[in-house]
Design a protein around this nucleic acid. Structure first.
Lengths: 262, 262
DNA sequence: CGGGCTTTTGACGTCGATCAAATTCGGTGG
DNA sequence: CCACCGAATTTGATCGACGTCAAAAGCCCG
Protein backbone atom coordinates (compact mmCIF):
# COMPACT_ATOMS: atom_id res chain seq x y z
CA UNK A 1 0.00 0.00 0.00
CA UNK A 2 1.47 3.34 -0.95
CA UNK A 3 1.42 6.18 1.52
CA UNK A 4 -1.15 8.03 -0.50
CA UNK A 5 -3.50 5.09 -0.57
CA UNK A 6 -3.19 4.84 3.13
CA UNK A 7 -4.01 8.49 3.63
CA UNK A 8 -7.25 7.93 1.79
CA UNK A 9 -8.06 5.05 4.07
CA UNK A 10 -7.30 7.13 7.11
CA UNK A 11 -9.65 9.78 5.89
CA UNK A 12 -12.47 7.30 5.67
CA UNK A 13 -12.25 6.58 9.35
CA UNK A 14 -14.87 7.88 11.76
CA UNK A 15 -12.46 10.43 13.17
CA UNK A 16 -12.52 12.33 9.93
CA UNK A 17 -16.14 11.77 9.26
CA UNK A 18 -17.68 14.75 7.55
CA UNK A 19 -14.51 15.99 5.96
CA UNK A 20 -14.45 16.49 2.20
CA UNK A 21 -11.98 14.06 0.62
CA UNK A 22 -10.13 16.91 -0.96
CA UNK A 23 -9.76 19.04 2.14
CA UNK A 24 -8.80 15.96 4.04
CA UNK A 25 -6.03 15.30 1.62
CA UNK A 26 -4.83 18.85 1.96
CA UNK A 27 -4.88 18.51 5.71
CA UNK A 28 -2.81 15.37 5.68
CA UNK A 29 -0.56 16.45 2.83
CA UNK A 30 2.37 17.70 4.88
CA UNK A 31 1.92 15.09 7.60
CA UNK A 32 4.66 12.70 8.62
CA UNK A 33 4.42 8.99 9.10
CA UNK A 34 5.96 7.75 12.26
CA UNK A 35 6.43 4.31 13.65
CA UNK A 36 7.63 3.39 17.11
CA UNK A 37 8.28 0.35 19.25
CA UNK A 38 6.46 -0.19 22.50
CA UNK A 39 7.73 1.96 25.34
CA UNK A 40 8.89 4.92 23.31
CA UNK A 41 8.21 8.46 24.49
CA UNK A 42 6.71 10.46 21.68
CA UNK A 43 7.03 13.72 23.56
CA UNK A 44 7.50 14.99 27.08
CA UNK A 45 5.29 17.20 29.15
CA UNK A 46 6.46 20.78 29.06
CA UNK A 47 7.50 20.71 25.42
CA UNK A 48 5.86 22.86 22.80
CA UNK A 49 3.45 21.08 20.50
CA UNK A 50 4.78 20.71 17.00
CA UNK A 51 2.37 18.15 15.64
CA UNK A 52 -1.12 16.95 16.12
CA UNK A 53 -0.72 13.21 16.64
CA UNK A 54 -3.09 10.78 14.99
CA UNK A 55 -2.77 7.20 16.18
CA UNK A 56 -3.34 4.78 13.34
CA UNK A 57 -2.26 1.55 14.89
CA UNK A 58 -1.07 0.47 18.30
CA UNK A 59 -1.73 2.18 21.61
CA UNK A 60 -0.44 5.28 23.36
CA UNK A 61 -0.80 6.41 26.91
CA UNK A 62 -0.76 9.97 28.14
CA UNK A 63 0.57 10.50 31.63
CA UNK A 64 1.48 13.27 33.99
CA UNK A 65 4.67 13.04 35.99
CA UNK A 66 5.47 15.09 39.06
CA UNK A 67 8.93 16.18 40.21
CA UNK A 68 9.26 13.18 42.53
CA UNK A 69 8.70 10.79 39.66
CA UNK A 70 5.19 9.73 40.58
CA UNK A 71 2.81 9.37 37.68
CA UNK A 72 -0.84 9.28 36.73
CA UNK A 73 -2.12 7.81 33.54
CA UNK A 74 -4.61 10.31 32.25
CA UNK A 75 -5.72 8.72 29.02
CA UNK A 76 -5.08 5.67 26.92
CA UNK A 77 -5.49 6.35 23.25
CA UNK A 78 -6.63 3.69 20.84
CA UNK A 79 -6.72 3.82 17.05
CA UNK A 80 -7.99 5.71 15.27
CA UNK A 81 -7.89 8.83 17.32
CA UNK A 82 -5.96 12.01 17.63
CA UNK A 83 -4.39 13.25 20.81
CA UNK A 84 -3.01 16.44 22.34
CA UNK A 85 -5.44 18.42 20.28
CA UNK A 86 -5.91 20.82 23.17
CA UNK A 87 -2.22 21.68 23.35
CA UNK A 88 -2.03 22.21 19.60
CA UNK A 89 -5.11 24.39 19.50
CA UNK A 90 -4.02 26.57 22.38
CA UNK A 91 -0.38 26.39 21.34
CA UNK A 92 0.54 25.75 24.96
CA UNK A 93 3.08 23.31 26.40
CA UNK A 94 2.07 19.67 26.68
CA UNK A 95 0.67 18.84 30.08
CA UNK A 96 1.38 15.16 29.56
CA UNK A 97 3.99 12.80 28.29
CA UNK A 98 2.99 10.37 25.54
CA UNK A 99 4.37 6.86 25.45
CA UNK A 100 3.64 3.99 23.14
CA UNK A 101 2.29 0.89 24.85
CA UNK A 102 2.67 -1.26 21.78
CA UNK A 103 4.34 -0.98 18.46
CA UNK A 104 2.44 1.92 16.94
CA UNK A 105 2.06 3.88 13.78
CA UNK A 106 1.17 7.54 13.76
CA UNK A 107 0.49 10.43 11.49
CA UNK A 108 1.96 13.73 12.61
CA UNK A 109 0.21 16.81 11.33
CA UNK A 110 2.33 19.94 11.74
CA UNK A 111 0.69 22.21 14.27
CA UNK A 112 1.08 25.34 12.18
CA UNK A 113 -0.38 23.68 9.15
CA UNK A 114 -3.28 22.40 11.18
CA UNK A 115 -4.05 25.87 12.50
CA UNK A 116 -4.02 27.27 8.99
CA UNK A 117 -6.33 24.58 7.73
CA UNK A 118 -8.58 25.28 10.66
CA UNK A 119 -9.21 28.74 9.23
CA UNK A 120 -9.65 27.45 5.74
CA UNK A 121 -12.00 24.59 6.50
CA UNK A 122 -15.05 25.01 8.64
CA UNK A 123 -15.70 21.28 8.58
CA UNK A 124 -12.36 20.59 10.13
CA UNK A 125 -13.00 22.58 13.28
CA UNK A 126 -16.27 20.74 13.62
CA UNK A 127 -14.54 17.41 13.39
CA UNK A 128 -11.98 18.40 15.95
CA UNK A 129 -14.54 20.01 18.20
CA UNK A 130 -16.37 16.70 18.34
CA UNK A 131 -13.23 14.76 19.08
CA UNK A 132 -12.14 17.12 21.79
CA UNK A 133 -15.59 17.06 23.33
CA UNK A 134 -15.39 13.28 23.65
CA UNK A 135 -11.97 13.47 25.22
CA UNK A 136 -13.22 16.09 27.63
CA UNK A 137 -16.03 13.87 28.72
CA UNK A 138 -13.66 10.97 29.14
CA UNK A 139 -11.68 13.05 31.59
CA UNK A 140 -14.76 14.03 33.55
CA UNK A 141 -15.53 10.35 33.98
CA UNK A 142 -11.96 9.69 34.92
CA UNK A 143 -12.15 12.25 37.71
CA UNK A 144 -15.41 10.81 38.92
CA UNK A 145 -13.90 7.36 38.86
CA UNK A 146 -10.79 8.36 40.77
CA UNK A 147 -12.54 10.30 43.48
CA UNK A 148 -15.77 8.43 43.91
CA UNK A 149 -14.85 4.77 43.58
CA UNK A 150 -12.53 2.43 45.41
CA UNK A 151 -10.01 0.50 43.39
CA UNK A 152 -12.06 -2.68 43.57
CA UNK A 153 -15.05 -0.81 42.23
CA UNK A 154 -13.00 0.61 39.41
CA UNK A 155 -11.80 -2.84 38.46
CA UNK A 156 -15.32 -4.16 38.67
CA UNK A 157 -16.60 -1.39 36.45
CA UNK A 158 -13.84 -2.10 34.00
CA UNK A 159 -14.68 -5.80 33.84
CA UNK A 160 -18.30 -4.98 33.42
CA UNK A 161 -17.52 -2.76 30.48
CA UNK A 162 -15.50 -5.51 28.87
CA UNK A 163 -18.34 -7.92 29.41
CA UNK A 164 -21.03 -5.61 28.15
CA UNK A 165 -19.01 -4.76 25.10
CA UNK A 166 -19.19 -8.39 24.19
CA UNK A 167 -22.93 -8.30 24.45
CA UNK A 168 -23.08 -9.39 28.05
CA UNK A 169 -20.54 -12.20 28.02
CA UNK A 170 -19.97 -13.64 31.48
CA UNK A 171 -16.38 -14.46 30.74
CA UNK A 172 -13.77 -12.04 29.52
CA UNK A 173 -10.06 -11.88 28.82
CA UNK A 174 -8.03 -9.08 30.25
CA UNK A 175 -6.60 -7.02 27.42
CA UNK A 176 -3.20 -6.50 29.04
CA UNK A 177 -0.87 -8.04 31.54
CA UNK A 178 -1.93 -7.12 35.04
CA UNK A 179 1.04 -4.88 35.67
CA UNK A 180 -0.06 -2.66 32.81
CA UNK A 181 -3.69 -2.86 33.73
CA UNK A 182 -2.95 -1.67 37.26
CA UNK A 183 -1.18 1.36 35.90
CA UNK A 184 -4.02 2.07 33.60
CA UNK A 185 -6.51 1.99 36.44
CA UNK A 186 -4.52 4.21 38.71
CA UNK A 187 -3.38 1.69 41.27
CA UNK A 188 -0.37 -0.47 42.11
CA UNK A 189 -0.16 -4.09 40.95
CA UNK A 190 -0.45 -5.16 44.58
CA UNK A 191 -3.69 -3.35 44.94
CA UNK A 192 -5.03 -4.65 41.68
CA UNK A 193 -4.45 -8.10 43.05
CA UNK A 194 -6.33 -7.23 46.22
CA UNK A 195 -9.08 -5.71 44.16
CA UNK A 196 -9.57 -9.02 42.37
CA UNK A 197 -9.52 -10.74 45.73
CA UNK A 198 -12.33 -8.52 46.93
CA UNK A 199 -14.30 -9.01 43.76
CA UNK A 200 -14.21 -12.76 44.37
CA UNK A 201 -16.68 -12.08 47.15
CA UNK A 202 -19.19 -10.80 44.68
CA UNK A 203 -18.86 -13.56 42.18
CA UNK A 204 -15.85 -12.77 40.04
CA UNK A 205 -13.45 -15.63 39.33
CA UNK A 206 -10.00 -14.82 38.07
CA UNK A 207 -7.35 -17.13 36.64
CA UNK A 208 -4.49 -15.23 35.08
CA UNK A 209 -5.99 -13.03 32.45
CA UNK A 210 -9.15 -15.09 32.31
CA UNK A 211 -12.09 -13.71 34.24
CA UNK A 212 -15.52 -15.18 34.87
CA UNK A 213 -18.34 -13.04 36.16
CA UNK A 214 -21.06 -15.08 37.85
CA UNK A 215 -23.64 -12.37 38.04
CA UNK A 216 -23.47 -9.21 35.98
CA UNK A 217 -26.26 -7.55 37.95
CA UNK A 218 -24.57 -8.17 41.23
CA UNK A 219 -21.28 -6.81 39.99
CA UNK A 220 -22.96 -3.75 38.52
CA UNK A 221 -24.56 -3.05 41.85
CA UNK A 222 -21.32 -3.57 43.71
CA UNK A 223 -19.43 -1.02 41.67
CA UNK A 224 -22.32 1.41 41.60
CA UNK A 225 -22.62 1.69 37.87
CA UNK A 226 -24.64 4.61 36.69
CA UNK A 227 -26.32 3.64 33.49
CA UNK A 228 -26.81 7.15 32.26
CA UNK A 229 -23.19 7.98 32.61
CA UNK A 230 -20.90 5.04 33.20
CA UNK A 231 -21.97 2.76 30.46
CA UNK A 232 -21.05 5.35 27.93
CA UNK A 233 -17.40 5.11 28.71
CA UNK A 234 -17.20 1.49 27.68
CA UNK A 235 -15.41 2.21 24.45
CA UNK A 236 -12.73 3.96 26.40
CA UNK A 237 -11.52 0.70 27.79
CA UNK A 238 -12.03 -1.73 24.96
CA UNK A 239 -8.85 -3.42 23.82
CA UNK A 240 -7.51 -2.36 20.49
CA UNK A 241 -8.90 -3.79 17.35
CA UNK A 242 -7.28 -3.88 14.02
CA UNK A 243 -8.83 -0.81 12.57
CA UNK A 244 -6.92 -0.11 9.44
CA UNK A 245 -8.11 -2.68 6.94
CA UNK A 246 -5.77 -4.58 4.71
CA UNK A 247 -5.68 -2.91 1.37
CA UNK A 248 -7.73 -5.81 0.07
CA UNK A 249 -10.54 -5.28 2.53
CA UNK A 250 -13.09 -2.61 3.08
CA UNK A 251 -13.46 -0.42 6.13
CA UNK A 252 -14.31 -2.51 9.19
CA UNK A 253 -17.69 -2.49 10.93
CA UNK A 254 -18.39 0.76 12.69
CA UNK A 255 -18.06 -0.26 16.32
CA UNK A 256 -17.43 3.28 17.46
CA UNK A 257 -13.71 3.09 17.24
CA UNK A 258 -13.15 6.48 15.80
CA UNK A 259 -12.66 8.15 19.12
CA UNK A 260 -11.64 7.52 22.63
CA UNK A 261 -15.14 7.44 23.96
CA UNK A 262 -18.63 7.76 22.59
CA UNK B 1 -28.98 48.77 29.84
CA UNK B 2 -31.23 47.10 27.33
CA UNK B 3 -30.81 43.41 26.57
CA UNK B 4 -29.51 44.18 23.12
CA UNK B 5 -26.86 46.52 24.42
CA UNK B 6 -25.80 43.87 26.82
CA UNK B 7 -25.51 41.28 24.09
CA UNK B 8 -23.10 43.54 22.28
CA UNK B 9 -21.04 43.87 25.40
CA UNK B 10 -21.00 40.12 25.88
CA UNK B 11 -19.75 39.69 22.36
CA UNK B 12 -16.81 41.95 23.04
CA UNK B 13 -15.56 39.67 25.75
CA UNK B 14 -12.52 37.49 25.22
CA UNK B 15 -14.66 34.38 25.01
CA UNK B 16 -16.09 35.56 21.74
CA UNK B 17 -12.91 37.03 20.47
CA UNK B 18 -12.64 36.64 16.72
CA UNK B 19 -16.34 36.46 16.06
CA UNK B 20 -17.85 38.91 13.59
CA UNK B 21 -20.25 41.24 15.38
CA UNK B 22 -23.00 40.25 13.04
CA UNK B 23 -22.61 36.51 13.35
CA UNK B 24 -22.25 36.93 17.06
CA UNK B 25 -25.57 38.68 17.18
CA UNK B 26 -27.16 35.92 15.18
CA UNK B 27 -25.70 33.37 17.54
CA UNK B 28 -27.07 35.08 20.60
CA UNK B 29 -30.32 36.10 19.00
CA UNK B 30 -32.50 33.29 20.31
CA UNK B 31 -30.67 33.03 23.61
CA UNK B 32 -32.40 33.38 26.96
CA UNK B 33 -31.38 35.48 29.88
CA UNK B 34 -31.44 33.69 33.14
CA UNK B 35 -30.76 34.82 36.65
CA UNK B 36 -30.46 32.66 39.73
CA UNK B 37 -29.75 32.95 43.43
CA UNK B 38 -26.81 31.19 45.00
CA UNK B 39 -27.34 27.46 45.49
CA UNK B 40 -29.65 26.84 42.57
CA UNK B 41 -29.23 23.77 40.39
CA UNK B 42 -29.21 24.80 36.77
CA UNK B 43 -29.39 21.25 35.55
CA UNK B 44 -28.77 17.72 36.76
CA UNK B 45 -26.38 15.13 35.51
CA UNK B 46 -28.10 12.65 33.24
CA UNK B 47 -30.35 15.22 31.61
CA UNK B 48 -30.19 16.05 27.94
CA UNK B 49 -28.47 19.31 27.08
CA UNK B 50 -30.89 21.94 25.85
CA UNK B 51 -28.71 25.01 26.08
CA UNK B 52 -25.13 26.03 25.99
CA UNK B 53 -24.66 28.02 29.17
CA UNK B 54 -22.68 31.22 29.19
CA UNK B 55 -21.93 32.61 32.61
CA UNK B 56 -21.99 36.38 32.58
CA UNK B 57 -21.87 37.16 36.25
CA UNK B 58 -21.56 35.12 39.41
CA UNK B 59 -20.06 31.67 39.78
CA UNK B 60 -21.15 28.14 38.95
CA UNK B 61 -19.73 24.83 40.01
CA UNK B 62 -19.95 21.60 38.08
CA UNK B 63 -20.00 18.45 40.15
CA UNK B 64 -20.47 14.74 39.80
CA UNK B 65 -22.61 12.88 42.27
CA UNK B 66 -22.60 9.14 42.81
CA UNK B 67 -25.54 6.98 43.92
CA UNK B 68 -24.47 7.18 47.57
CA UNK B 69 -24.57 10.94 47.49
CA UNK B 70 -20.85 11.58 47.51
CA UNK B 71 -19.67 14.34 45.27
CA UNK B 72 -16.65 15.73 43.46
CA UNK B 73 -16.38 19.25 42.27
CA UNK B 74 -15.00 18.97 38.77
CA UNK B 75 -14.88 22.60 37.71
CA UNK B 76 -15.69 26.02 39.02
CA UNK B 77 -16.75 28.37 36.27
CA UNK B 78 -16.11 32.08 36.46
CA UNK B 79 -17.40 34.82 34.18
CA UNK B 80 -17.20 35.11 31.34
CA UNK B 81 -17.09 31.56 30.22
CA UNK B 82 -19.31 28.95 28.73
CA UNK B 83 -19.82 25.52 30.18
CA UNK B 84 -21.08 22.08 29.18
CA UNK B 85 -19.95 22.72 25.67
CA UNK B 86 -18.88 19.09 25.36
CA UNK B 87 -22.33 17.78 26.17
CA UNK B 88 -23.98 20.17 23.73
CA UNK B 89 -21.57 19.35 20.94
CA UNK B 90 -21.90 15.60 21.35
CA UNK B 91 -25.58 15.90 22.23
CA UNK B 92 -25.02 13.47 25.08
CA UNK B 93 -26.40 13.56 28.63
CA UNK B 94 -24.74 15.89 31.11
CA UNK B 95 -22.10 14.14 33.15
CA UNK B 96 -22.31 16.80 35.83
CA UNK B 97 -24.74 18.84 37.80
CA UNK B 98 -24.39 22.64 37.69
CA UNK B 99 -25.07 24.75 40.73
CA UNK B 100 -24.73 28.46 41.26
CA UNK B 101 -22.36 29.45 44.03
CA UNK B 102 -23.44 33.04 44.03
CA UNK B 103 -26.19 35.07 42.54
CA UNK B 104 -25.52 34.61 38.83
CA UNK B 105 -26.65 35.74 35.45
CA UNK B 106 -26.47 33.50 32.42
CA UNK B 107 -27.15 33.44 28.75
CA UNK B 108 -28.66 30.21 27.49
CA UNK B 109 -28.06 29.45 23.84
CA UNK B 110 -30.40 26.75 22.54
CA UNK B 111 -28.36 23.67 21.69
CA UNK B 112 -30.02 23.11 18.34
CA UNK B 113 -29.51 26.70 17.32
CA UNK B 114 -25.88 26.51 18.35
CA UNK B 115 -25.29 23.41 16.27
CA UNK B 116 -26.84 25.09 13.25
CA UNK B 117 -24.71 28.17 13.68
CA UNK B 118 -21.70 25.93 14.00
CA UNK B 119 -22.25 24.84 10.42
CA UNK B 120 -22.87 28.34 9.21
CA UNK B 121 -19.95 30.04 10.91
CA UNK B 122 -16.45 28.70 10.73
CA UNK B 123 -15.23 31.29 13.21
CA UNK B 124 -17.63 30.02 15.80
CA UNK B 125 -16.25 26.52 15.88
CA UNK B 126 -12.81 28.00 16.27
CA UNK B 127 -13.91 30.05 19.22
CA UNK B 128 -15.52 27.06 20.85
CA UNK B 129 -12.63 24.78 20.00
CA UNK B 130 -10.34 27.13 21.86
CA UNK B 131 -12.62 27.32 24.85
CA UNK B 132 -13.06 23.57 25.03
CA UNK B 133 -9.33 23.06 24.71
CA UNK B 134 -8.74 25.25 27.74
CA UNK B 135 -11.35 23.40 29.74
CA UNK B 136 -9.79 20.12 28.73
CA UNK B 137 -6.43 21.23 29.97
CA UNK B 138 -7.97 22.42 33.20
CA UNK B 139 -9.25 18.90 33.78
CA UNK B 140 -5.89 17.35 33.06
CA UNK B 141 -4.42 19.56 35.74
CA UNK B 142 -7.22 18.69 38.05
CA UNK B 143 -6.48 15.00 37.68
CA UNK B 144 -2.82 15.59 38.25
CA UNK B 145 -3.64 17.63 41.31
CA UNK B 146 -5.94 15.05 42.78
CA UNK B 147 -3.69 12.08 42.25
CA UNK B 148 -0.25 13.53 42.69
CA UNK B 149 -0.59 16.02 45.51
CA UNK B 150 -1.62 15.79 49.12
CA UNK B 151 -4.31 18.10 50.36
CA UNK B 152 -1.78 20.39 52.04
CA UNK B 153 0.11 20.67 48.79
CA UNK B 154 -3.07 21.49 46.93
CA UNK B 155 -3.88 24.24 49.38
CA UNK B 156 -0.34 25.54 49.14
CA UNK B 157 -0.51 25.61 45.38
CA UNK B 158 -3.80 27.42 45.57
CA UNK B 159 -2.41 30.08 47.88
CA UNK B 160 0.60 30.47 45.68
CA UNK B 161 -1.61 31.06 42.69
CA UNK B 162 -3.55 33.71 44.56
CA UNK B 163 -0.31 35.38 45.58
CA UNK B 164 1.26 35.25 42.15
CA UNK B 165 -1.89 36.61 40.57
CA UNK B 166 -1.37 39.68 42.66
CA UNK B 167 2.12 40.06 41.35
CA UNK B 168 3.79 38.13 44.10
CA UNK B 169 1.98 39.55 47.12
CA UNK B 170 2.98 37.81 50.33
CA UNK B 171 -0.40 38.30 51.87
CA UNK B 172 -3.68 37.16 50.39
CA UNK B 173 -7.35 36.98 51.30
CA UNK B 174 -9.20 33.73 50.82
CA UNK B 175 -11.93 34.27 48.29
CA UNK B 176 -14.52 32.14 50.09
CA UNK B 177 -15.43 30.91 53.50
CA UNK B 178 -13.32 27.88 54.35
CA UNK B 179 -16.21 25.48 54.22
CA UNK B 180 -16.70 26.33 50.57
CA UNK B 181 -13.01 26.40 49.83
CA UNK B 182 -12.60 22.88 51.19
CA UNK B 183 -15.27 21.61 48.86
CA UNK B 184 -13.68 23.35 45.96
CA UNK B 185 -10.35 21.73 46.68
CA UNK B 186 -11.71 18.25 47.07
CA UNK B 187 -11.35 17.78 50.80
CA UNK B 188 -13.35 18.05 54.00
CA UNK B 189 -13.30 21.22 56.12
CA UNK B 190 -11.49 19.28 58.83
CA UNK B 191 -8.75 18.38 56.45
CA UNK B 192 -8.50 21.88 55.09
CA UNK B 193 -7.89 23.02 58.62
CA UNK B 194 -5.17 20.40 59.02
CA UNK B 195 -3.70 21.43 55.72
CA UNK B 196 -3.30 24.98 56.98
CA UNK B 197 -1.78 23.59 60.14
CA UNK B 198 0.81 21.75 58.11
CA UNK B 199 1.52 24.76 55.95
CA UNK B 200 2.35 26.71 59.09
CA UNK B 201 5.50 24.64 59.23
CA UNK B 202 6.64 26.05 55.96
CA UNK B 203 5.93 29.65 56.70
CA UNK B 204 2.24 30.21 56.05
CA UNK B 205 0.33 32.19 58.69
CA UNK B 206 -3.43 32.00 58.69
CA UNK B 207 -5.94 34.12 60.59
CA UNK B 208 -9.47 33.56 59.40
CA UNK B 209 -9.49 34.32 55.72
CA UNK B 210 -6.29 36.31 55.95
CA UNK B 211 -3.15 34.48 54.91
CA UNK B 212 0.47 35.56 55.05
CA UNK B 213 3.13 33.69 53.13
CA UNK B 214 6.58 34.23 54.56
CA UNK B 215 8.51 32.77 51.68
CA UNK B 216 7.03 32.20 48.28
CA UNK B 217 10.00 30.15 47.12
CA UNK B 218 9.79 27.84 50.06
CA UNK B 219 6.07 27.31 49.60
CA UNK B 220 6.51 26.69 45.90
CA UNK B 221 9.05 24.04 46.67
CA UNK B 222 6.88 22.45 49.30
CA UNK B 223 3.94 21.98 46.99
CA UNK B 224 6.12 20.95 44.10
CA UNK B 225 4.99 23.56 41.68
CA UNK B 226 5.95 22.89 38.11
CA UNK B 227 6.47 26.21 36.43
CA UNK B 228 5.90 24.92 32.95
CA UNK B 229 2.56 23.48 33.85
CA UNK B 230 1.16 24.54 37.19
CA UNK B 231 1.51 28.26 36.98
CA UNK B 232 -0.70 28.30 33.98
CA UNK B 233 -3.67 27.18 35.94
CA UNK B 234 -3.67 30.24 38.11
CA UNK B 235 -6.64 31.81 36.41
CA UNK B 236 -8.65 28.74 37.22
CA UNK B 237 -8.67 29.62 40.86
CA UNK B 238 -8.79 33.37 40.89
CA UNK B 239 -11.84 34.79 42.61
CA UNK B 240 -14.40 36.38 40.35
CA UNK B 241 -13.95 39.86 39.14
CA UNK B 242 -16.60 42.14 37.90
CA UNK B 243 -16.25 41.49 34.24
CA UNK B 244 -19.24 43.04 32.64
CA UNK B 245 -18.60 46.76 32.64
CA UNK B 246 -21.24 49.28 33.54
CA UNK B 247 -22.82 50.60 30.42
CA UNK B 248 -20.93 53.83 31.00
CA UNK B 249 -17.54 52.17 30.93
CA UNK B 250 -15.53 50.44 28.30
CA UNK B 251 -14.47 46.84 28.26
CA UNK B 252 -12.27 46.02 31.24
CA UNK B 253 -8.55 45.27 30.97
CA UNK B 254 -7.87 41.97 29.28
CA UNK B 255 -6.67 39.91 32.20
CA UNK B 256 -7.43 36.62 30.52
CA UNK B 257 -10.87 36.27 31.95
CA UNK B 258 -12.53 34.95 28.90
CA UNK B 259 -11.99 31.37 29.79
CA UNK B 260 -11.45 29.07 32.68
CA UNK B 261 -7.72 28.75 32.19
CA UNK B 262 -5.06 30.12 29.92
C1' DC C 1 -25.16 37.38 77.27
C1' DG C 2 -26.63 33.26 74.67
C1' DG C 3 -27.89 30.50 70.52
C1' DG C 4 -26.21 28.89 66.08
C1' DC C 5 -22.74 29.00 62.98
C1' DT C 6 -18.07 27.97 61.32
C1' DT C 7 -13.43 26.39 62.34
C1' DT C 8 -10.23 23.62 65.00
C1' DT C 9 -8.58 19.47 67.38
C1' DG C 10 -8.47 14.73 68.76
C1' DA C 11 -9.62 9.86 68.22
C1' DC C 12 -10.57 6.50 65.33
C1' DG C 13 -11.36 3.64 60.74
C1' DT C 14 -10.58 2.81 55.83
C1' DC C 15 -8.13 2.84 51.66
C1' DG C 16 -4.28 2.59 49.10
C1' DA C 17 1.04 2.81 48.80
C1' DT C 18 5.21 0.67 50.09
C1' DC C 19 8.38 -2.89 51.56
C1' DA C 20 9.41 -7.54 51.95
C1' DA C 21 8.74 -12.26 51.26
C1' DA C 22 6.41 -16.13 49.24
C1' DT C 23 4.49 -18.16 45.15
C1' DT C 24 3.49 -18.85 40.41
C1' DC C 25 4.43 -18.68 35.56
C1' DG C 26 6.94 -18.76 31.22
C1' DG C 27 10.38 -20.01 28.91
C1' DT C 28 15.52 -22.08 28.67
C1' DG C 29 19.10 -25.06 28.65
C1' DG C 30 20.62 -29.47 30.05
C1' DC D 1 11.19 -34.15 30.05
C1' DC D 2 12.78 -31.69 33.92
C1' DA D 3 15.41 -28.47 36.92
C1' DC D 4 16.12 -23.61 37.04
C1' DC D 5 16.19 -18.45 36.33
C1' DG D 6 13.88 -14.16 36.15
C1' DA D 7 9.71 -11.79 35.92
C1' DA D 8 5.01 -11.34 37.16
C1' DT D 9 1.71 -11.92 40.70
C1' DT D 10 0.10 -12.67 45.28
C1' DT D 11 0.12 -12.12 50.27
C1' DG D 12 1.31 -10.12 54.65
C1' DA D 13 2.80 -6.24 57.55
C1' DT D 14 3.11 -1.48 58.08
C1' DC D 15 2.56 3.41 57.05
C1' DG D 16 0.62 7.67 55.59
C1' DA D 17 -3.31 10.34 53.90
C1' DC D 18 -8.08 11.30 54.44
C1' DG D 19 -12.78 10.78 55.92
C1' DT D 20 -15.84 10.49 59.82
C1' DC D 21 -17.49 11.32 64.46
C1' DA D 22 -17.40 13.87 68.44
C1' DA D 23 -16.20 17.52 71.22
C1' DA D 24 -14.03 22.00 72.08
C1' DA D 25 -13.11 26.69 70.70
C1' DG D 26 -14.18 30.85 68.21
C1' DC D 27 -17.40 34.12 66.01
C1' DC D 28 -21.20 36.63 64.51
C1' DC D 29 -25.31 38.90 65.76
C1' DG D 30 -29.36 39.54 67.67
Amino acid sequence: MTPVDELDLVLQLPLFDGLEPESGRRLLGPSLHCEAQAGVNLFQQGERPEYLHVLIEGAVELRCVDPTGHEVVVEVVRPVDCFILAAVVTDAPYLMTARTLEHSRLLLIPAGHLREELYRQPALSLVLLGSLARHYRALVRQIKDLKLRTSAERVGAFLLCLALDQGGATTVELPYRKRVLADRMGMTPENLSRAFARLRECGVQNQGSHVVIEDLERLAEYCRMDTAIDRVEAALRVPAQQVLPDSSESVPPSRAQGTTDT
